[in-house]
Design a binder for these strands. Structure first.
Lengths: 262, 262
DNA sequence: CCGCGAAGTTGATCGCGATCAAAGCGGGAG
DNA sequence: CTCCCGCTTTGATCGCGATCAACTTCGCGG
C-alpha cells in the first residue's frame, strides 16, 4: 500500500534560488512567468497534490500553480483569521500549525514537511483557522483556490483533505487514550515514517521543534517530554543529543505502545 | 454568519415509512425510483450538503442522491476497513464514530446529528477508517462518491470536509489543553449549539450517548463525567436526570472555561 | 573571547483524575 | 409484576504527570 521509498532530497533544493529580487507574479494570466521548476519536474510530484495525474493533466495544473513563496524561520505563512484565498503545497522546509484560545492558551495542531498541503482548513469559512509558522526557512507553492477546478484537481484535493481527517483521528486517539510514553513513542514513529517516505533515514534525524512544541502537540509538559527522552535513552531505545535523534530500536519503540500497560 | 434558526423536527420524520418492504434501488440509471422527499423538499437542505445550491443545481444533485438507508440503534452504517464507495448525509437520528487501536482500546471520535456528512474519511484510502454506529434509529441519504462530480458538488464537499477539519482542531484543543471541567462544559455547549441550529432548544435536550461514550470522546473516565454532572448540578449550572439535560446557566458554563484556572 | 537569553535537564512536591469497589436506579423481557 | 442487566452514582485510594525551582548547555552577537 505504501509507495516505494523515494530517493531525493527536497530539503536541499531551494538553495540556488539566487538573490532576493524575485519578480512579482503578474496579473496577466495569458502570459505569466513560468516557474524554474514546474510541477512536471518537481521532485515532490509523487508526494504532492498532483500525485497520480497524467502528463496532460499535470500541464493544466502547472498553469494554476505558478507562484512560490518563501517563509523564513519564525515567520507566518498565514494567521488564523486571515482571509482565505489559496492553499499551499510545501516544497521545502518545516512548519507548525497552531491555534490559540481566547484566554491565550495555544496548542500546536500539526507539524508539516515537504509535499504536504497547507491551508485547507480555510475553505469552509473563507478564513484560515490556524496560524502557520515556519520552524525553518521554507518554500511553498501557492495554489489559488478559486482556480482549482480549472486543473480538474478536485479529486486530489478531496484525497488530501481526507487524509488529513484521518491523521486528525490518530491525534485524537493519541491525546484521548495514550499514556505519556505511548504518546512520545507514537510521535517519534510518525516522524520517522514521514522522513522515510521522503527518502531520509527513518532512524536518524533532526528535530525542528522545541520540547515545548512537542509537548503542546502531544498534550504533555515540556519537562515530561524531556524526561521521557532521557528515559528512552537509558533504556537503549534511542540516543538524544539536543535536537539530534537516533532511533536504535524501532520495534522497541513500537512495543512501548502495547507493553507499557499490561 | 450563523443562519437563522430553523423550525423543523428532523428527528420525528421517519416514523411513517411503513413496513419493512422497502424496494431495492434499481441499477437502471435512466429511470430510478424517486425519493418521496427529494432534496428540494427536504427540511435539511439549508444544513445539508447541497446547502447554497440554486434550484437548477439542486435538481442535478437530486439525480445522484436517490437512495436512503435506515440504520437501527446499535447497528453499523459502516465499519473501519470496509471499502469506500459512498458518503452519507444524515437525515434523522444520531450516530457516533469511533476508532479502535490494535490492542482493543477504542475511542469515540465524534457524534453526528441531522444534516451532517459521514464517511469522508474514506475518500483518501478507498476504505473507511472509523466505525459508524447508530445511537438511535437513523436514516441517511446515500451519495455515491463516484457520481459527485455530476452534480457539481465538489465545492460543497470541500467545504464540508474543511469544516470537519476545523472541528477536529477544536477537539484536539480540548483534549490537549483543557481540564476536566472545561472539557465537559465545552462538550455541552457544543451540543447545545448544534441542537439550536436544528431548531431544538439549546437548553433542554436528551443525551443519546452513555457517560462512557462521552468520557471516551473528551478523554475522561466515565466516573469523572458522572461526578462532573453532579457538581455542575450542585453549582446550579444545570439539572441532570439520567440522560435528560437542562442547562440553567449558559454563561456560567462558558465561564467554567476561563474562570476555573485563574 | 565572553556574556546573555533561550532551550533543555533534573529534582521535589502536589493535585487532578484514573482506578477499584460497592451500592442505587431504570427499563425491558418474560 | 418481578427479575435482571446495563447504566449511573458515589466513595476511597493511588499514581501519573503538572508544576515549581534550580542548574546546565547551547547558540549567537558583540
Amino acid at each position: 500500500m505504501k509507495a516505494a521509498t523515494l530517493a531525493f532530497h527536497p530539503f536541499a533544493t531551494s538553495k540556488s534560488a539566487g538573490p532576493s529580487s524575485r519578480p512579482k507574479p503578474r496579473q496577466d494570466n495569458s502570459k505569466v512567468a513560468r516557474l524554474a521548476t514546474p510541477c512536471a519536474k518537481c521532485n515532490l510530484r509523487e508526494l504532492c497534490l498532483p500525485c497520480g495525474l497524467k502528463d496532460q493533466e499535470l500541464a493544466l495544473f502547472a498553469n494554476v500553480v505558478y507562484t512560490r513563496k518563501k517563509v523564513k524561520r519564525g515567520e507566518h505563512l498565514f494567521r488564523a483569521g486571515d482571509i482565505f484565498d489559496s492553499i499551499y503545497a510545501l516544497r521545502s522546509g518545516f512548519l507548525k500549525s497552531s491555534v490559540v484560545l481566547e484566554d491565550g492558551r495555544d496548542q500546536v495542531t500539526g507539524f508539516h514537511m515537504a509535499g504536504e498541503i497547507l491551508g485547507m482548513d480555510g475553505i469552509g469559512s473563507e478564513r484560515y483557522t490556524a496560524d502557520l509558522i515556519a520552524l525553518e526557512d521554507s518554500e511553498v507553492c501557492v495554489i489559488p483556490y478559486g482556480r482549482i477546478h480549472e486543473a480538474g484537481m478536485q479529486r486530489q484535493l478531496h484525497k488530501a483533505m481526507s487524509r488529513e481527517l484521518v491523521r486528525d483521528q490518530s491525534v485524537m486517539m493519541l491525546l484521548g487514550t495514550m499514556s505519556a510514553d505511548e504518546r512520545l513513542a507514537a510521535f517519534l514513529l510518525n516522524l520517522s515514517h514521514r522522513f522515510a517516505a521522503r527518502g531520509f533515514s527513518p532512524a536518524e534525524f533532526h528535530l525542528r521543534m522545541t520540547r515545548e512544541e512537542i509537548g503542546s502537540y502531544i498534550g504533555l509538559s515540556l519537562e515530561t517530554v524531556s524526561r521521557l527522552f532521557s528515559r528512552f535513552q537509558e533504556e537503549g531505545l534511542m540516543t538524544v543529543q539536543q535536537k539530534h535523534i537516533c532511533i536504535l530500536d524501532i520495534s522497541g519503540l513500537k512495543a512501548v505502545m502495547v507493553h507499557v500497560n499490561e
